[in-house]
Design a protein around this nucleic acid. Sequence first.
DNA 1: GCGGATCAC
DNA 2: TATGGTGATCCGC
Length: 392
Amino acid sequence: MQPHHSRAASCDGDAIRHDDEAAFNCHQKQSPHKDDKPWHSYDTVFLNAKAGMDGVDKEKVQKVVYEMSKGSRYFENEKRKEAVVEQRIDRLRSQACLITAAGLASLEKVVDKKIGELEANRDLSRVWIHVDLDAFYAAVETQENPSLKGKPMAVGGLSMICTANYEARKFGVRAAMPGFIARKLCQDLIFVRPDFEKYSKYSELTRQVFREYDERFIARSMDEAYLDVTDICRERTISGAQVAEEIRHHVYEKTKLTCSAGVGPNRLLAKVCSDINKPNGQYVLPNERSAIMNFISALPIRKVSGIGKVTERMLKDVLGISTCGDLLQNRYMISALFSPISRDFFFSVGLAIGGSEPPQDEPRKSLSNERTFMATTDESFFSKKLEVNVST
DNA sequence: GCGGATCAC
DNA sequence: TATGGTGATCCGC
């Protein structure tokens, strides 16, 4: 690995000149050393575009998060992880530099065949809806305590927030943010202790509605579900959009909670669409290939379920990929650099194919329970914990 | 094969 | 003062 390092930096551009790979360039800078990073480049997930975060002063959020985090154990661990990711990116860059035009050309046949197969299996015959309750935990709490209405509120505690309502999101407060940072961003933030039994009850009410439209609906969490409404649409000769409206109305009647919905030919697209007009809205994609390809081409890769912070950076920093359309533009480089599993996933995303087949409920594979201990190096502490739990 | 990473909620 | 828990899958050694 290390020998390639210097090579990556000096590697000459004669390696690749393929029209598909215009974005790639061997002279790209190496990742800066972690200590070179100023506060304003501190990477936090809290700045990702999320529903209700439009008018947020991102600079301020970034600064507050950094100031509250630096020096902590958490922060040091984040820096360590960040260094590992940058190593991974540098390694990928080095590999990219070694790829020759001939090497890329030799992939064309296989790659184009693969994409042809995916395209041939595209299924535009189904109508999927993804339903997502708006700020679920916070909405339930407000439902049961109307005095919270209109005030910035978060469900959780000073160490962790589960959900923030839309008033709180205006300050940059959001799920998975530690409460003590959230309070710094929003002095008047009201904290409500989570009550999962309560949320479970409301969740079951929404599922009663989902069941009426698709008895085999896929529940992804307490506040999210996928419904295959193909048969409903045919039987009642109505559109997916109309079904989505109906479902959202029924959910509201039953729970007084609002939800958002996305409609499309598969789960990948329905999921992306449900986020577009959140809260209390819906977005519909027609089952037409041209419309779908227009939509997916311009879509930032990070919007797709399964592409997270690290994958986004690898694709962007190494190949300059930022939209799903770029995934197909760079198909030969992707094929050369990633595993077959990753490659097939990226191609599917580029084609907007994924999850159109009927659901198949598989048995749960594991069940676990964990708790984070206070920081300690005391071995006897762990020994005691082990004794308590070891039984059979 | 295994531990660590990644991802989603 | 203080940065989660659960389940699945994939990567890299």
